[in-house]
Structure formats: C-alpha cells, structure tokens
C-alpha cells in the first residue's frame, strides 16, 4: 500500500497505513513523550502524556492512526503544558519519594519530569494510603508508586498468558489487583514473567536487586528519556 504523508511540527513524515502517529514518529526518529505505551504491548491510551494536536484537536498519539495530510503539533507551548500538568498529576496522586526509591535513575516517570522540566509540583500532594504486597518470594508491589499504566496487566495477559493483574474499583480509587483473594504469592506469577519487567516506575519490582547500579550509570543518568528514539534517526 502507498505511504501516507503528513507533518509533525512542519517536518514531512512518511508512514504506513495502519500505523499510529507514535509508531510513525518513532520510525522517523521523532520522540513523542509517553508512559503507558510499551513496545510489544497493545496501546492503552490511558496516561495521556502522548497528547498531541492533530489538525488542532487533542489526541493520544499512541492510539490515533495517521492519515494523509494531517498536521501534528508535538511541541507547542500548549502541548508541553498539558504534558507537564499530567506528569504533575501523577506525582501528586501517588507517594513518590524518588530519593530513596530503588527505581530512581531508571524510572520513566522521574525521567519524564526531568525531560519536560517539571521540578516541583504546583498542586498539593494527595498523600493517598496505598497497600504494599511483599508476600511473594521474588517480587513485590508498592502501590504507592503505581501510575495505573496497565503495562503489567497487558503483559501478563497477552505475553505471559496468565492474567495475574487487573484493575479494580474506579475513579481515584482505581488500583491494580492480583488474581487471588489477597496476595501476590497466591498467583501464578514468576520472576521471569514479562509483567515484572515492564513497570515504568518502582511499583512492581524484583526483590534483592535494588540499587545494584551505581548513581552515574543508571539508565537516565546521562541521557534523557526519548534519546534512544531520537538517536535512531541520526544513525540510520
């Protein structure tokens, strides 16, 4: 099928029919910030960090298909403000203490905040009371840090074939539950599951490996999040 041509921030992009804006942007080496999307999993469209304006209308780049002749705004002040607001929301909604979190330096939420220039939130922290589940011998869940991206839910269902996780409740009470009456240790999860690997933050972690990488060598210590996509362009 013929290529679809469109513009992101005045750059001409060629994409394939059926691609989302994010897929086409990735292939072109243009980074659109994201949190719930993970390569190899179905897009979720929940975090809304990837919001762009398509012909002036706000859309999630991870789920919106490309179309001939559209113009995508991925960088205006307005777009940036929305993304910053959303990152702030995620910080104040949970209990994120980056300075002593095992995920620090490898955390996508933290890295996004740095990249987007969110230094201190404008809005008061909500300090929710959330549960920790350390029942499993190799894995723990700290819901204080969960951003409800649904990566673990999808990975467990679609890749591990297990349905260990699912969302329960709604609105601000929404949270990730496990497929047992109470504990993670009563589920089929295994430390080698894809679900354990995909958490963007420090909510679903392996035991006994925290802080293994020294500061200075962690994933985002030297390069901002998204640079892997931007660099792809330069090398090809």
């Amino acid at each position: 099928m013929a290529d679809i041509t469109f513009k992101i921030d005045n750059v001409d992009i060629k994409g394939k029919p059926g691609q989302t804006i994010m897929e086409a942007a990735d292939a072109a080496g243009i980074y659109i910030p994201r949190l719930c999307t993970y390569e190899g999993l179905q897009p979720h469209g929940s975090c809304r960090v990837c919001t762009v304006f398509v012909n002036g209308r706000a859309q999630a780049a991870c789920t919106q298909p490309i179309a001939e002749g559209i113009t995508v705004d991925n960088s205006s002040e307005e777009v940036q403000q929305i993304r910053k607001d959303i990152i702030e929301m995620l910080f104040v909604e949970g209990n994120h203490y980056c300075m002593f979190c095992e995920k620090s330096g490898n955390c996508e939420l933290q890295a996004l905040a740095y990249r987007l220039g969110v230094l201190a939130p404008k809005y008061p922290y909500l300090f929710p009371k959330r549960d920790i589940d350390a029942s499993h011998k190799d894995i723990f869940i700290d819901r204080n840090r969960c951003v409800l991206c649904g990566r673990c839910v999808r990975a467990s269902q679609d890749i591990d074939g297990k349905n260990v996780f699912e969302f329960v409740d709604r609105g601000p009470d929404k949270r990730v539950a496990v497929n047992s009456e109470a504990k993670l240790s009563d589920t089929e999860i295994d430390v080698t599951d894809k679900a354990v690997e995909v958490c963007p933050v420090g909510a679903l972690l392996k035991k006994r490996v925290g802080y293994a990488v020294p500061i200075g060598e962690r994933l985002y210590d030297n390069k901002p999040i998204g640079s892997e996509i931007e660099n792809k362009n330069q090398s090809s």
């Binding site: 469209g45 929940s46 975090c47 809304r48 960090v49 607001d85 959303i86 929301m89 995620l90 104040v92 909604e93 809005y123 008061p124 909500l126 951003v147 409800l148 969302f167 409740d169 709604r170 609105g171 601000p172 009470d173 929404k174």
Partner: peptide, 21 residues
C-alpha cells in the same frame, strides 16, 4: 470525581485537584 472510570490521568486526578483548589 465519583463517577470517573479512572482510566485516564487527567480525569482521574485532574478533577480531584480542581475540586481541592
């Protein structure tokens, strides 16, 4: 706030912050 499904961030969190403000 009570009726939000909680799927997406702006509605799940934003409405709480709006109400608090």
């Amino acid at each position: 706030i009570e009726e939000s499904c909680g799927y997406c961030t702006p509605c799940r969190v934003g409405n709480v912050l709006l109400k608090d403000t």
